[in-house]
Structure formats: structure tokens, C-alpha cells
Design a protein around this nucleic acid. Sequence first.
DNA 1: CATGAATGAGTCTTCATTCAT
DNA 2: CATGAATGAAGACTCATTCAT
Lengths: 219, 219, 219, 219
Amino acid sequence: MVSRVPADPVSSLDRGKIERRRQILDAAKQVFADAGYHGASINAIIERAQIARGTFYLYFESKAAVFDSILDEAMAQLRSRIHRIEVEDPTAAPPQVQLRNQVVATLGYVVGDRALAELLLQSAHAPEAEATERLDQFYGEVRRLIVRALEQGAAIGLVRKCQPELVAGALLGMVRGVIEVMMLHPEPDASSPGPRYTVEDVVNEVIGVGLRGVLATER
Amino acid sequence: MVSRVPADPVSSLDRGKIERRRQILDAAKQVFADAGYHGASINAIIERAQIARGTFYLYFESKAAVFDSILDEAMAQLRSRIHRIEVEDPTAAPPQVQLRNQVVATLGYVVGDRALAELLLQSAHAPEAEATERLDQFYGEVRRLIVRALEQGAAIGLVRKCQPELVAGALLGMVRGVIEVMMLHPEPDASSPGPRYTVEDVVNEVIGVGLRGVLATER
Amino acid sequence: MVSRVPADPVSSLDRGKIERRRQILDAAKQVFADAGYHGASINAIIERAQIARGTFYLYFESKAAVFDSILDEAMAQLRSRIHRIEVEDPTAAPPQVQLRNQVVATLGYVVGDRALAELLLQSAHAPEAEATERLDQFYGEVRRLIVRALEQGAAIGLVRKCQPELVAGALLGMVRGVIEVMMLHPEPDASSPGPRYTVEDVVNEVIGVGLRGVLATER
Amino acid sequence: MVSRVPADPVSSLDRGKIERRRQILDAAKQVFADAGYHGASINAIIERAQIARGTFYLYFESKAAVFDSILDEAMAQLRSRIHRIEVEDPTAAPPQVQLRNQVVATLGYVVGDRALAELLLQSAHAPEAEATERLDQFYGEVRRLIVRALEQGAAIGLVRKCQPELVAGALLGMVRGVIEVMMLHPEPDASSPGPRYTVEDVVNEVIGVGLRGVLATER
DNA sequence: CATGAATGAGTCTTCATTCAT
DNA sequence: CATGAATGAAGACTCATTCAT
């Protein structure tokens, strides 16, 4: 870090470290997805990442720390896909379209990273403190995001009166439940029996149920 | 309970065995709820059940086996609370009431057994293969139950056209999500800050969202 | 522990546990003596004790705990060999004889348990907190014992005026130094070159130097 | 210090190397003193020395090697403070004064370098073979020095008949014991409770006990 | 039937040392 | 010469399961 070298190499060094970190993060994500937080052994992670035991601890303090990093990254990505819905701005798309776009973006992100999706569903509320709390926090944050959206929606008369926290829990659960069904079906790669759902399908149902419920329209 | 003597024991022994089994099952449920599948140690279970290590293995083949039994029992209870909704029979209550009753019964059962509720949410897709698969099966069964109900509902025009499996996943997830929120709040015992939700509240929102969605009625 | 059995067996069970404990304690003492606190691996201890890894932890909480137990036992033994020197009682042996007897008993105990002797000298002030502190405590206690003896000796005019703590340190160090020399020489088993010292020799010199110093008598 | 250029460097390089070596040696001494041989990590040493990991191994073959060097240096210093006591030369100071001077010089050196003092006492017979043997050698040499002095003293009738090796061990131990007591008390810097011993105090007691023992003079 | 002592595979983590840059 | 990323052997400890009594 003394930088006897001109300029570029420095960043190349850093780039090396960043790449390594990525490599470990990705390997860990896969392993967590496959085996759950507890079932994931450092061994499995370093084997997948093709690194030595010590190298792992060069980049992450502990197993819990990688887990944290994975969730942090996911949370950041999710946040970046969610914005306040513009109702006043006449140049903006209609609220329902904005909503649908965000749901598509969000769901698309999670479902696009199969390992992440599995990890999020799977370890849901893992056992020992460290990891559990992190997942709980994660879902807590998401729920708060939804609560805020519901309250804003209610303020502008878009959303009916309800207990926002319960409904947020219901909506979050709904999304998880729907992703779970997607995951159950074989990789969207090719010929295999059983239905296969696209993000479009899923978004349609989520929005359908979420907005209008399951009853037939002639209510 | 020591019974070194022969005696007439047959039935008394059986009754004893059944009680012992219950005792272990209850202890295990609590421990699984408190610590998750992995975090639950045989040690903790036998301590809570006040039995010796070996005795545990006299009643259950393995840790996974107790877990199984707990889920089996829960499944049986749930099934017993769910019936075909009678639409034709004019003497029966109206479908919506029948539905609500079943939801109340079901939710009430799960929420009434706090340990069970925690266990079901917590370990959701637990770590080690063994246990994971069992939970997946459990939820699979529940989902199938809902799919069938949706299809019947659709057949009689009560439910709108949809992809039943996805919607079943959404509804199941919704219920879990709502229970989760309930669990997050302090025991419904007494004075403590924050809202506290009753089964009634929860059922209202579940049915509300599930049947009509979140939109304001003037759609 | 339910004790369905009459009476004797209970103690036999306990005897078994006590023997096991002894077995581990002895193995550990040897290993600590050979390799020092840090150098001693649980592996080495269980190999020497011919037990499985888990068994070790059935009897001791940790490596540090066995170390503690060894020191505790030694301390108890030492204490039991040290008594107040009777000066007033005319039927008692003369003070110098009483002193010599105690030194013989004490030194004999330590030197008779070669492993203990090595352990006490060796790890003297080991590194990481746990064990270090225990050894420091141990020597602190011994030093306090000597300080008290010196003060009593001074009170009856047997011992000259001095800074008791420093002198206690000096005397304790002297004993350790002398034991160290003994340890350096081959097991007192048989024919081998170099001098070999008996407890008698050692006591003589310790008492000689301790009481009269090294100067020739015609001071 | 980066010196990518050839330059005239020879001597300047050497001087640089020597300084670096010193820097590492001093850092290591502190760390060994603080943490013991085992507890001392290369990490801690290079952090304190403000150098890179690899650099350490450019100056020392291994952790054990630095430890060796520290002891070698101390040994050299001690030797330089010990001389044959002149009895014949009438112009020389009286033997007892010469002795006292040397004890003062020696003890002063060790106690003056607190880190060294701690290191020497602490690791007394450290754990892993490598280091242990070196410390044993060190003390062996010191003991031999004392044996020689005792034999010379006996030859000229200054010292009474005794087993020189045992007595040497006793004296060496005494010195260590006394230093240990000094170390136990807070830095001789300022206001703090408990006694504090000066080198003078210590030398007095060492010489007192060593030469005359602990008995009251009216023997 | 009940017991609990014994087992050992497996887990996470540390750290001295090497070597390509 | 200096650097620090990479290595992997080794360590302490846990825990589900077995089996002789």
C-alpha cells in the first residue's frame, strides 16, 4: 500500500481484492442457498470458491459476517428498485403502472438470483442468534418499507383502511410464498414436466391477489 | 414407572409409553421453537423432558424423527379443521361464513400453540436436508389443500380465474406472514407497549386481503 | 442416579467416574509437563489417557479447567504438609526440626511427582490469560504462606528483620531453582553419568542457604 | 528506505539493515513480554514494528529465531557485567564490595529493561520445544557462571563447602524470585498503593539472604 | 424399559510461513 | 529489498448417536 508504482496498479490491486471478495461472496451465497445457514460449512464455501481456508478469513471475519454481507447487498439492491410512487406529477405513469413496474423490478431481481431467492426463503429465521437476527432485521426492514407505502397509499385514498403492519406482513408473506412456488419448479432452462412460471405470471398473480383478492369480480 | 417387575403391564405400559412420547414431543416442540432445528440439541430436549439420553432414542429414531412427528401431528390437526365448503346444501351456512369459520379454526389452532407457530415459521426450510425436506413436504401438503379449495371455488364460480398453484402459494405465504407479525409482538398477556393482534384481527385482514385485495372499494 | 439398586453400587458408579477423572488428570499432568500449557494439545492428552475426544469434555469443561484442577490439587497437597511451627509447646520438636520436616515433606511431595514438578516450573507464567493467571495465583498463594511464616518467625525473634515479601519471593525462587537443578538430572533410576541429588541433599542446601547464606562460618 | 535505486548504498544499506533488525528485535521483545512466547503472534510483532509480514522473514528465519536473538543479546550484556572477583590485588576493592557491585550491575540491567525482565520470567521454560530449549540453555549458562564463581569463592575460603550446582540453582532462583516480586508491583513511576521496591532494596535482600540466610544474627 | 458414559466425526477459527509481484 | 495475499496444518470444542449395565 506504499504505492511505489505510478497510479493504475493501485486500483488493480484493489480490483483483485474486490474480485476475490465477490468470488467468496458468490460461493457462499450458493452454499447458504443449498444448505441453509447452519448446514453451510466453511469447508463447503472454500471448496466452491477454490480458495484456501485461511483466505476466507482474510476477507471475512466469520461465517456470520459473510452471511451479513450477502443480506446487506440484497437489501441495497432492493432499496434501489423501490421509489416513492408519484401521484401528483401528471407526466408520470399512472400509479398502478408505477407500482407494477416496481414489483416487476423487485421480484425480477430476487428471482433472477436463484441462490439469493433460496437463501432468503430457506434459512428464514435461522437458529443461533447471529444469523437469525440478521434475517429478522432484513425482513423487518422490508416490512417497514411496505408499511410506509401502504400509509402513503391510504393518505391518497388509493388503499383502503387497514392495519398496515398486519397487511404488510401479509403482502410480504405473499411475495415469499409466490417465489417459493417458483423455486419449486425446475430451472426455467428447458424441457421438463410441470408448469413453469415467469416473472410476468407471478407479478400478475401477486398484483391480482394483492390488489383485488381472489374473489370473482361480480362481487 | 420403573417397572422391573413383569406384572400385567400390557395396557398400562402402553399408556405409559404414550405419555412418555407426549412428554418428549412437547419438550422437543418447545426446544425447536426456541432454538430452531439446528440449534435444538438432544441435550436440551431431554433436559426439558426430564429423561435420560438413551430414553429419547427409545421413542424416536433420531432428532429428525421427532421433528417429523411434530409436523405430522400438526398436519393431522389442520386437516381435521378443514372441510369441503358446502354450496349446494341450502341448510348450510353461506359459503363466505363457512370459509371464515375454517380460517378462524385453522389460524386459531396454529396461533394457540405458540411453540408450534414459532417452529413452523422459524425453521421454515431448515438447514439439514433431513429436516428441510420434511418442512417442504408439510407446506407442500398445505398448498395442495388450498389448490383444491381454489379449484372447487372456481368450479362454482366463487373464485375468479387464476393460476391456482401460484395463488395458493400467495395465500399460504400471506398466512405465514401474518402469523409472523403476530409472533413479533409480546405475549398477549398484559401491559406492554406496541399493538397486539388477536386472532380476530388477523383473520379479518387475511380474509380482507385474500378476498378483496388492498385497494379501496371505489374501484 | 435413580438408584434402584440397594446401596453399594452407587458408590461404585461414582468410583468409576472418579477413576476416570484421575486417569485424565494424570495424563494431562504428564502432557502439560512435557509440552507446557500451550504445547499441550487435547489430542495428546486423550491419546495418553486412552479416551475419546468427547470423553475428555465429559469430565472437564476445557483445557484450562484441567490445568486448574491440577494446580488446585497440588495446592491442597502442599497446604496439608505445612503447619504452624510450635514454639511454645515444650513437648514439640525444636523449631528448626519442625521447619526441616515441613521442608522435607513439601519438597518431597513436589519432587516425588516429577510431572508436577516439571509442570510447575515449566509453564511458569504461561501466556494466555486463563492459564497464566492460575499459575500466578498459585505462586501468589505460596508466597503468602511464606510471608506469614516469616512474620511469625520475626515475631518470636527467630528471623531477622527484612522485607518479608521480597524475602518470600527469594525463598520461593530458591526452591524452584533447586528443584530445577534436580529435574535437569536423569531420572533417579540407575546408572547414568553426572551427579544425582536426593531430596535430602536438596533440603540440606535449601535450608543451608536459606537460613545461613553461602558465606563461610568464620564471618 | 525504499531504495529502488542502486546508489552507493553498501554501508548505508547495512546501517539500514541493522536499524531494521533493532526495530524488529525491540518490537518482538515487547510482544513476547506482553503475551509470552506462544501468545506472541507474528502479526503483533510486525504491527508494532510497523513492517510488512514478509519483511520480518527477511531479517529472521522464524519466530523462534527472534526469540533466540533476544536471549543472545541479553546473555552478552549479562556477561559483560560479570568479572572475576579480584582477591589478591590489594588495590582492588574488598571482595564483598566487588560482589555487591556486580550484583547491582546485573540486576540493574535486567530490571532496567522491564520487557526483558518479564520475558525472562514469564516464558520461563516456554511451551514449544524450540523456545523452551533456548531458555533452558540461557539459564544453564547463567548457572554455570555462578557455579564457577562459587568454586572460586570456595577456593579462597570465602564460601563455605557446598554442592555448587545446587546452590547455584538456589541463587539463580532466588534472583528470579525477587525480580518476580518487583514485577508484580506497579511501575516505579508514581503514586499507587502497595509497596514498591528499588533495585537497592532488592540487592540488599538478595545479598542478605544469599550470604547470611534469614536467621537472626544471634545464632 | 431406562440409564448415562462413551464415542468420534465434524465445526469454526488461528497463525506461522511462503512467494509472486 | 519490501510487500502482503495466499496457504493449510493444527487447535479447541460440540453433539447426535450407541451400548453395556
